[in-house]
Each structure stands twice: as structure tokens, then as C-alpha cells.
Design a protein around this nucleic acid. Sequence first.
DNA 1: CATGAATGAGTATTCATTCAT
DNA 2: GATGAATGAATACTCATTCAT
Lengths: 201, 201, 201, 201
Amino acid sequence: MHFKSNVCYNKNMPKVINHDEVRGKLLSQCLNLFSHEGYGSLTMRKIAKALNVSTGTLYHYFDSKEDLFRQLVEYITHQDLFDVEKALQGADTFSERVDALLRFFIDREDYFLNQVIIWMDYTRQQGEGTEAEPGPREALVQYEQGIIRLLGIEKEVARFILAAINGLVIQRYIDGGRTSLATQSILIRQYLLGQEEQGSL
Amino acid sequence: MHFKSNVCYNKNMPKVINHDEVRGKLLSQCLNLFSHEGYGSLTMRKIAKALNVSTGTLYHYFDSKEDLFRQLVEYITHQDLFDVEKALQGADTFSERVDALLRFFIDREDYFLNQVIIWMDYTRQQGEGTEAEPGPREALVQYEQGIIRLLGIEKEVARFILAAINGLVIQRYIDGGRTSLATQSILIRQYLLGQEEQGSL
Amino acid sequence: MHFKSNVCYNKNMPKVINHDEVRGKLLSQCLNLFSHEGYGSLTMRKIAKALNVSTGTLYHYFDSKEDLFRQLVEYITHQDLFDVEKALQGADTFSERVDALLRFFIDREDYFLNQVIIWMDYTRQQGEGTEAEPGPREALVQYEQGIIRLLGIEKEVARFILAAINGLVIQRYIDGGRTSLATQSILIRQYLLGQEEQGSL
Amino acid sequence: MHFKSNVCYNKNMPKVINHDEVRGKLLSQCLNLFSHEGYGSLTMRKIAKALNVSTGTLYHYFDSKEDLFRQLVEYITHQDLFDVEKALQGADTFSERVDALLRFFIDREDYFLNQVIIWMDYTRQQGEGTEAEPGPREALVQYEQGIIRLLGIEKEVARFILAAINGLVIQRYIDGGRTSLATQSILIRQYLLGQEEQGSL
DNA sequence: CATGAATGAGTATTCATTCAT
DNA sequence: GATGAATGAATACTCATTCAT
């Protein structure tokens, strides 16, 4: 995307590589893999092959398969923060902002589905034992607050909208796309406009 | 492939084993296992140990791990048909029927979550290649029609409600139960009652 | 060696195998392997191939490579207890008993060398951390006491004799057999007979 | 194989690096590593980390892990030649020289043990195939002749003494130091003094 | 000279599956 | 029908080694 020089000279002239940059580049290619195969079924060899590197290289950048997965979750979770805000711009009326929101999700349906699938795998992975790492939970809150800021609605309503969108995406995944996003969007739209009329926001 | 008698008579006639019955009993114990571990991470040995049988026995009743999983999906998919109808009984007014529906899902949240998780794993498993087996898709339609029959609402609205419930359950899974089912139920309730008033059903 | 029936019938007629017996049979073939290759260089695949079984079978009987090694140490350590006593029989005079002892070690030089090598690898394996498992230490004491009982000499003298024999075997290992066991035996013999004359036993 | 200058002049003349010197410095730090981990279990990365250099540097000075090990054996084998002679000085009577010898080994027990362990690993490494390189065999002969020169005893007796000391060190390794070096030294001392009295040297 | 990123064959271990009993 | 011993391909991960910088 943006230009970044890879060249630098240190005293003994070893091969110069920006570790974190490479790591990020690798992570960015992993979302689809994990989402399509599932944590348990995706092998390090498959990943290596898909990323055109050796397994050794994978382990050079990540401690383990689990570590790679965790970093992926963190990566995609943070990635969104910028994007969500974009939906805010250039929409004046409430109706326009609702449209912007729906469009945001419709345009990114695939990415959003992958994200939810990863989150579910991640949640499963942790088991009930670990309560520690927030990860996806945080991301959900981010989405929620983005919706609240955009539409100026109550937290519980925003959460409901998010759940509905989540559910739609998943339903389309399961039923092979038979659910119509266009039609369902209209329903969500009507609901939100109705809420505004009632002043119950 | 080959013919297999379901009834077996020992010389002493006491022990009659019904192949399908045993199979069903085994399947019924697998939902949690697959849902908690994921298809890729669950091993036949874990299953065998959890069901208190040997792996040999597992392979006596199922051709492969994949076959077992498919049969499980079929099993849980058909299992619901009976249950859904129960929600219909003893609810006269529209409001009561809405309550019955919400209660149905809230009471069975765990089961419903497991079911959705399995469906997602199943969908993933099949890949884009196989278009053949409907499975979960059918089940979703069943739920949809159950809701239509119960509430007398339009198909797209029923689908929306289902998606919202789906989404809620998953959101609660991901955020560790932070989303309140009670509060969200009220929103769904308000939405449905509002729809009825408008006569837009 | 001795006859042992493998046949038995349990209620469901599964394949009947004496787990421990097979395990022992496998262990008995591992001494040379570990001794010749060294713990770190010997692979499970090499072991499996040498024992004519699959790696899976190896792991059916042993938890890990380390577990296999530990059990091997225990196995060879206990194996000796019977053999040491044999050297006692049919030797009346002190001189005869000394000869019996020397002959015992000379005849079993290879086995004894392997044993010492394994013990050293085992000691190294444990690191300084674990003080727990006696293993080889016990075996050394057994040898010591066997020598004491046989020759009626003091503990420290017995220990000295054992050390000398240990050292000889290792020296022959390192120098490719250039040290003569016959000549050295005479020295040990002279030393022991000298000790007896002095009555310093 | 190819010629390699040991001296290197940078353009600014300050940094003169002697290839062999650096190599020796590296080797001198490897004895403990190989002895504690064992050839098969010690990795080039562990070595590099322990020596505070990169693996690349290691391969700059040594062709391979095996080459490094061989050079280490050669290094420690030659290192001793000087030290052994030190034990000779300032000991006039036979008794004093015996004490000097015993003290020599007792003071250097750890180093001597490491050395024997390395020799055994080296012997194992070569397998029966290679008869070529003498290495440790030579070193044993050196020790032997040093003892002969020091005490003026017969070759086979010197060899016996060496074997006993070897055996003692190893026995202490295996039994965790339970064997007393002091007590055992007295036995060796008595034996040697007895030999002298008999004039059987 | 020195570095450490990259490689891919190799390591310990696991897994779905088979089959003799 | 039921068992669990046996298999060997596959898995996560490591290692000696190379090489661009």
C-alpha cells in the first residue's frame, strides 16, 4: 500500500529484513485459509504452501500453529478499527447513515463472514478454561460503538442490529446464499427508521 | 452397500440388538463433542472414549469419521422437527405466541448454539465443491416455516427473526455471555408486535 | 524361554495379547540400539525398523521416546540381579571365586559395556535437575554387594574392583580393544590375592 | 582443502583477526556443551547461542557439526599434553609422585569426566566402520606414558591405574558422587606402594 | 567477517482405519 | 458384535545447512 524502504545498513551487514512487516504480510494471507479449512483441519504445511514459504519460515515468525492463529485473530481484530470509521463519512440524514451502514456490511460480506468464523473457532479453541484474552469480544464492542456513533441509537439496539447482521451472514453461509441480502436489508432499514420515528432511540 | 439385518438373534434369544437404535444412541452423544472440539480437532479415539466404546465399535456403526459426522448432522437436523411444533401449543394471542417462540429458543440456547456450530462446520467441510446434500439448509427452512405457522408472519420477516436469534446466540458465544438474552428478547418482541399493529404481516 | 500360554477367552473375544510381555520383548531388543547410536541420535523410526514394528506400535507400548528409554534402563538394571548370583556357584577357594568374578565380566564384556554406556546416557539425560530416580545407581550397588558376598571383601575394595573393571571395559571401547583383558585380569587377580594375604579384607 | 590466510587486514589496519585463534576460542567453550548434552542432542543453534555468535559464524569456522565435534576432540586431546607434565614437577620420592598423580586427577575430575564422555561419544559416532582417526586412543596412550614416566612403573600397571581412575570418575558420575574419591585414592596409593615394595615394577 | 532469514528433509508423535480374535 | 493391537501416512515442529546482505 504505502511505500516503505527495506534497506538499512548495520555494522556487520547481515541480511536486512523487517521482521514485523514480514509477519504482518504472512498473517494477512491467513484469514481465508483458517476460515475455509478450520483451525483443526488446516495444517502448517497447507499454510506454508499457500503462502509460498517453507514450514521452517513459518516457524521463524511464529512460535506454533496456535501462536499463529492467535496473532491472526489479533491482526484481523485490529484491522477493522480503521475501516469501521469510513462508513461514517458523507452521510447526513439518518436514512443515509443507515444505508451507509448496511452497504458497509453488504460490501464486505465475505470478509465479515470469515471474521465471524475465525472468532468462533478462536472461542472454541480457548475452551472454557481461559477467560483471559478478550480478542473477538473487544472487536464486537468496537463494532457496536461504531454503530452507536453512526446512528446515535441505544447500545442494546445497536447490539441487536449487529446480531441480526451476524445472523444473516451466517444464515447465508449455511443455506448457500439463498437468503437475500437486499430484502433483509430493507427489513433492517424499516426497523431502524421505525425506531427513529418513535423517538425510542 | 451390502445388506445388513438390523435384528440379531443369539442362540439364547435374549440379546436382541437393533443396529439403528444403537447407532442413534451413539449419535445422540456426539453433538457436544463435535461442537466443542470442532470436526478437525475431534478424533475418533476421543469420541470412542467419551462414548465408552472402542474405536472398533465406532467403525462397526459408521464407515468413517466423515460418515459419522454426516449422520450426526442428519440426526440433529431431523431431531428438531418434533420439538419446534411443541412451541405452538397453548398459546392463543399473538403476544403469547411470540413469547412462546422466544422462550423456546432461550430455553434451548445451548442446544441451538451447538447446532449452529455443527452446521457451520458441516458447511465448511463440504467446501464449495459439493452442492449435493441439503442438510442444514433444510433445517433452516423447517425453522422458518415453523415460525411462519406459529406467528402467521411473512417468510422474509420470519427469516429475519431467525437470523436475529441465530446472531444473538453466536454473539453470546463469542462475547462470553455478555449480551443479555432477556433485553434482546424484549427488542425482538417489540419489533414483532409493531409489525402486527401495522398489519404488515 | 519358558512356556507361556497366550490364549484366553474374555466375553467379547477381542484380540488377546499380553501387553507387558510384548513390551518386555520390545525392550530387550533396544539395549544395543541405544548403546550404539546414543539417545539423541537414535530415532523412533530406526527403533521401529530394527524391531520390525511400526512407529504406531512403539507408541502403543510406550508413551514417548523418553519413556521407552527409562523403561529400558529399568529393564536392564533389573535384568542383572539374577545373573550376578550365578557367578557365586561352584567356586570354593578365594582364588577360584576371584576367577569366577573376572570370568563373569570378561564373558559379558559387550553387554556390560552397553549397560555402562546406557547408564551414562541416562545420567546425562536426567540433567542435574532430577535427583529422583535411582536406576543405575541402584544397579551399581547391586554389583558391589554381589562382589562383597562373593569375595568377602570390604565395601570400598569391592567398589574399587568394580571401578577398575568399569574403566577397563570403557578403555577397551575407546582404544578399539588394544587393552588386553587377559593381562589386566592378572593384575586385578594379583591385587585381590595380595589383599587376602595381608588379611586386610 | 583450500588455502586460507589466517591474518586479515582491514582497510584501517586495526582489526587483525586470526582465524585459528578464534576457532580455538570457540572450541574451548564447546567441551561442556557436548559433554552435557551429547552429540546427538546438541544442536548448532544451542552452540551458537551458548557461544554468543550466530550459526553463520559457526559455519564460517567449521564445515559441519561433525567437523566441529572432530576438531573439539582433537583440541581437548592435544590440550592435555602440556598439563600432564606439570604433575611431574617438584615430587622427589615415589610416594610424593603417587600423591601428585592422584591429586592431578582429583583436581581435574570434572574436566577429566567431560573428556571421557566426549571420547565415548566420539567412539560411538565413528561407528565400527571408520578405523582411521586415532584421536582419543592417542590421548590414552599419552596419559599412560605420562604415568610411566612419572612413576617408573610397567606399562600394564600404568594402564591398570588409568583404567581404575577412569572407572572411578564414571562411577561417581553415575552414582551422583556417592563414591568417595579420598577413600578410593588411598586404595590406589596402597596398591602402588605395595607394587614398589615388591619391586615388581 | 558476521548475521539471521530461509529451506526442506527429518523428528517425535498422532490419527483414521483395519482386522485377528 | 466388540475389542484394542497394529499400521503407516500425516501432523506439528526442529535442525543442519546455505546464502543474500
